[in-house]
Structure formats: structure tokens, C-alpha cells
Measured scan of single mutants.
Amino acid sequence: DEDSERELEKLRKNNASKEEIKEVLKRLGFSEDEAKKLAEKAG
């Protein structure tokens, strides 16, 4: 959803580590696997 998109955008701009991105995604309700895949894509 839009909030998670914004959250990811912010992380990308701040050069967050894949680990940080994954944690945020998991907080947003993604499964471990989904979060890992998305973090890879974002990283």
C-alpha cells in the first residue's frame, strides 16, 4: 500500500541496509520470504 511504498522510498534514499529494509517490511506485515525478496529488489 501507499504507506509502505513511502517507507521503502525513504529507506532507499537513506541507503538503508537490506537488513533494515527487511525489518521494516516485516513490521508492515510481510512474511520473512516476501520481505527478503523486496529488500533484495530495493537494495
Results as ranks from 00 to 15, higher is better:
residue 7 E to F: 14
residue 21 I to V: 04
residue 32 E to N: 03
residue 31 S to D: 06
residue 5 E to F: 14
residue 18 K to M: 14
residue 15 N to M: 10
residue 21 I to D: 01
residue 4 S to N: 09
residue 15 N to P: 02
residue 17 S to R: 06
residue 17 S to W: 05
residue 23 E to M: 07
residue 31 S to M: 04
residue 15 N to V: 03
residue 16 A to G: 04
residue 3 D to S: 10
residue 43 G to V: 14
residue 36 K to F: 10
residue 42 A to R: 09
residue 8 L to F: 06
residue 39 A to T: 06
residue 6 R to L: 08
residue 37 K to G: 06
residue 22 K to V: 15
residue 20 E to Q: 10
residue 42 A to V: 13
residue 23 E to R: 09
residue 39 A to W: 07
residue 31 S to F: 02
residue 40 E to W: 07
residue 5 E to Q: 12
residue 27 R to I: 04
residue 27 R to F: 03
residue 43 G to S: 12
residue 15 N to R: 11
residue 17 S to I: 04
residue 11 L to Q: 02
residue 19 E to A: 08
residue 2 E to L: 13
residue 22 K to G: 02
residue 20 E to C: 13
residue 2 E to M: 13
residue 26 K to P: 00
residue 33 D to N: 06
residue 4 S to D: 08
residue 25 L to I: 01
residue 37 K to F: 09
residue 32 E to Q: 04
residue 22 K to S: 06
residue 4 S to L: 15
residue 3 D to V: 12
residue 19 E to L: 05
residue 18 K to V: 14
residue 18 K to I: 15
residue 40 E to L: 06
residue 7 E to M: 15
residue 9 E to S: 11
residue 3 D to I: 13
residue 16 A to T: 03
residue 37 K to W: 08
residue 21 I to R: 01
residue 35 A to V: 07
residue 10 K to W: 10
residue 32 E to A: 04
residue 32 E to H: 03
residue 29 G to W: 00
residue 36 K to L: 14
residue 22 K to H: 09
residue 7 E to N: 05
residue 41 K to T: 11
residue 42 A to G: 10
residue 20 E to N: 03
residue 17 S to D: 05
residue 3 D to E: 12
residue 2 E to V: 13
residue 23 E to V: 04
residue 31 S to V: 02
residue 39 A to N: 02
residue 33 D to S: 08
residue 6 R to Q: 07
residue 21 I to L: 06
residue 40 E to I: 05
residue 25 L to D: 00
residue 15 N to A: 07
residue 36 K to W: 12
residue 19 E to N: 05
residue 22 K to R: 11
residue 13 K to S: 09
residue 43 G to Y: 15
residue 38 L to N: 02
residue 11 L to R: 04
residue 38 L to Y: 09
residue 41 K to L: 13
residue 2 E to Y: 13
residue 8 L to D: 01
residue 10 K to Y: 09
residue 8 L to V: 05
residue 43 G to H: 12
residue 11 L to I: 03
residue 40 E to V: 07
residue 33 D to L: 07
residue 38 L to H: 04
residue 17 S to E: 04
residue 36 K to E: 15
residue 4 S to F: 15
residue 24 V to P: 00
residue 22 K to P: 00
residue 20 E to H: 07
residue 16 A to E: 02
residue 5 E to N: 10
residue 5 E to A: 11
residue 7 E to I: 15
residue 6 R to W: 10
residue 3 D to P: 08
residue 5 E to Y: 14
residue 23 E to A: 10
residue 20 E to F: 09
residue 13 K to I: 06
residue 26 K to D: 03
residue 9 E to P: 05
residue 2 E to D: 11
residue 25 L to Q: 00
residue 2 E to S: 12
residue 27 R to V: 03
residue 20 E to K: 09
residue 28 L to Q: 03
residue 11 L to F: 04
residue 26 K to S: 05
residue 30 F to I: 04
residue 40 E to M: 07
residue 40 E to G: 07
residue 39 A to C: 14
residue 4 S to K: 11
residue 10 K to I: 10
residue 8 L to I: 09
residue 17 S to Q: 04
residue 22 K to F: 15
residue 35 A to S: 04
residue 26 K to Y: 02
residue 8 L to H: 01
residue 24 V to S: 08
residue 1 D to G: 11
residue 9 E to F: 01
residue 10 K to R: 14
residue 8 L to G: 01
residue 19 E to V: 03
residue 23 E to H: 05
residue 27 R to M: 06
residue 3 D to A: 13
residue 8 L to K: 02
residue 35 A to E: 01
residue 40 E to Q: 07
residue 11 L to D: 01
residue 14 N to D: 06
residue 34 E to S: 03
residue 26 K to T: 08
residue 15 N to I: 04
residue 5 E to V: 13
residue 39 A to L: 12
residue 39 A to I: 11
residue 38 L to A: 05
residue 10 K to T: 09
residue 43 G to L: 13
residue 24 V to I: 10
residue 5 E to I: 14
residue 13 K to N: 08
residue 13 K to Q: 09
residue 7 E to R: 11
residue 34 E to D: 10
residue 34 E to V: 09
residue 30 F to C: 07
residue 19 E to F: 04
residue 38 L to F: 09
residue 5 E to H: 12
residue 27 R to E: 03
residue 30 F to V: 03
residue 13 K to D: 04
residue 12 R to W: 11
residue 12 R to A: 04
residue 24 V to Y: 15
residue 31 S to Y: 02
residue 23 E to N: 09
residue 8 L to N: 01
residue 30 F to W: 09
residue 42 A to K: 07
residue 42 A to I: 15
residue 23 E to G: 04
residue 4 S to A: 15
residue 3 D to K: 11
residue 3 D to G: 09
residue 31 S to C: 07
residue 41 K to C: 13
residue 14 N to S: 11
residue 29 G to N: 01
residue 35 A to M: 04
residue 16 A to Q: 03
residue 14 N to G: 09
residue 34 E to L: 08
residue 12 R to V: 10
residue 27 R to W: 05
residue 27 R to C: 11
residue 38 L to S: 02
residue 12 R to D: 01
residue 21 I to W: 11
residue 25 L to E: 00
residue 36 K to H: 12
residue 23 E to W: 03
residue 30 F to M: 06
residue 2 E to I: 14
residue 26 K to L: 14
residue 5 E to G: 07
residue 27 R to H: 05
residue 41 K to F: 12
residue 24 V to E: 05
residue 4 S to G: 10
residue 36 K to T: 14
residue 30 F to E: 00
residue 26 K to G: 04
residue 20 E to Y: 10
residue 19 E to S: 06
residue 42 A to H: 15
residue 5 E to R: 14
residue 35 A to I: 12
residue 26 K to F: 02
residue 29 G to P: 00
residue 24 V to T: 09
residue 14 N to I: 09
residue 7 E to Q: 11
residue 6 R to M: 07
residue 28 L to M: 12
residue 16 A to V: 05
residue 4 S to I: 15
residue 32 E to T: 03
residue 27 R to Q: 07
residue 42 A to N: 13
residue 7 E to H: 08
residue 35 A to T: 02
residue 1 D to Y: 13
residue 4 S to M: 15
residue 43 G to I: 14
residue 16 A to P: 02
residue 39 A to V: 10
residue 4 S to E: 07
residue 29 G to R: 01
residue 26 K to Q: 11
residue 42 A to Q: 10
residue 15 N to Y: 09
residue 19 E to R: 04
residue 32 E to D: 10
residue 15 N to H: 12
residue 32 E to L: 02
residue 3 D to F: 13
residue 41 K to Y: 12
residue 35 A to D: 01
residue 25 L to N: 00
residue 11 L to W: 02
residue 4 S to R: 13
residue 41 K to V: 12
residue 1 D to W: 14
residue 13 K to A: 10
residue 21 I to A: 03
residue 39 A to H: 01
residue 5 E to M: 14
residue 28 L to S: 01
residue 32 E to V: 03
